[in-house]
Design a protein around this nucleic acid. Sequence first.
DNA 1: TAGATTGTTAATCGATTAACAATC
DNA 2: TAGATTGTTAATCGATTAACAATC
Lengths: 207, 207
Amino acid sequence: MAEIRTPATTIERLPLYYRCVQKLDSKGVDVISSKELGAMIEIPSTQVRKDLSYYGEFGRRGVGYEVKNLVKNLRRILGLDESWDLLLVGAGNLGQALVNYGGFKRLGLNINYALDIDQDKIGNNLGAAEIHQLDQLEEIIAANNINIAILAVPDENAQQVADRLVAAGVEAIWNFVPIRLDVPEDIEVRNEDLAIGLISLTYYLSN
Amino acid sequence: MAEIRTPATTIERLPLYYRCVQKLDSKGVDVISSKELGAMIEIPSTQVRKDLSYYGEFGRRGVGYEVKNLVKNLRRILGLDESWDLLLVGAGNLGQALVNYGGFKRLGLNINYALDIDQDKIGNNLGAAEIHQLDQLEEIIAANNINIAILAVPDENAQQVADRLVAAGVEAIWNFVPIRLDVPEDIEVRNEDLAIGLISLTYYLSN
DNA sequence: TAGATTGTTAATCGATTAACAATC
DNA sequence: TAGATTGTTAATCGATTAACAATC
């Protein structure tokens, strides 16, 4: 059967490749070798070739990879051909920062819906989204076919909100709350734990 | 010589252990087994024991780990015994969110200094920090012995600011700009690339 | 043809996990 | 003593890298 699973580490690198080839394309570069692409993100050329090989044969021997072709294929592989609507739950500082982060829109990712419990915020605009009552969570998800939610609420509410998101049909949660969410295993959760990054720096500086 | 390096993956888990034992301690739990601790972050007990073993013998056979002792040791290992002053460069949405993130203060990490180029922001308070002119970067780092900087500026300024940070004596950069910084290798850089997390979700949903 | 570069196999490296003696 | 749990060695698993035939 020889089931060949793509390593998780490969998947993490795909967005980096994608960003590189996008930049190369915008600079008018036509062809790039695995060696040059690897140099851009400081990994060996073998790694680049191996990673891409999980998805097909995109290069030409003796020549390299056609940039436009790689852009197109990586877009498809990453699911960025589709247009995704995202629901932000928790329009605090972090939520606002994410909406304004900008990098997302050009990827076809739109934070179009936002929820909060703060009455003062309801009705305000946040980027392309209007802030609605948290109560409307189920309604908004159902009406707009939302499948990805961004969780940026206080720790103590996180699990409860996650439960509601799952029940309402969300398939993936981008979780900024430093808590292990308990969700069914078919729900994709990506934990974005900011403290880890900073603590790892203090670790290295004192060791 | 048998040089035993701690795996990078172990170091990433240390902050998770630390957070768990802190929580357990605040709940009044005295002793925890590697099995229970592992269950809290969904990893096997062997992993917990192996990870901790890189730093010493903190448990008692047949009993488990004394929570307070683990808190104390992990604090020390992670360098959180020292009090760190952090300089935020770029007081935009993301920078503001980080300052207000809260989780840092109780770790002994203080974002006490902030810089921006926007004249309207200069002089304003941002959490515990006052926002200063970007011009004062070198001066502030030198006067306050800053060794960790948070980089949250626009892409096009990132490398230039990083160069100034390094020249001014900063030892570590927590980089939120989706760009590979070119710095001397004795400088610790932690790249926090938000787009990766989100794109990996679209990847999994469409595959 | 000579030089460059891919795609892939096999070797290596590193991290996780199973197993178990030591010990409470 | 019997049951529990650590710390560590050895086995396994998975990811990276070296090597090279295929090919432009």
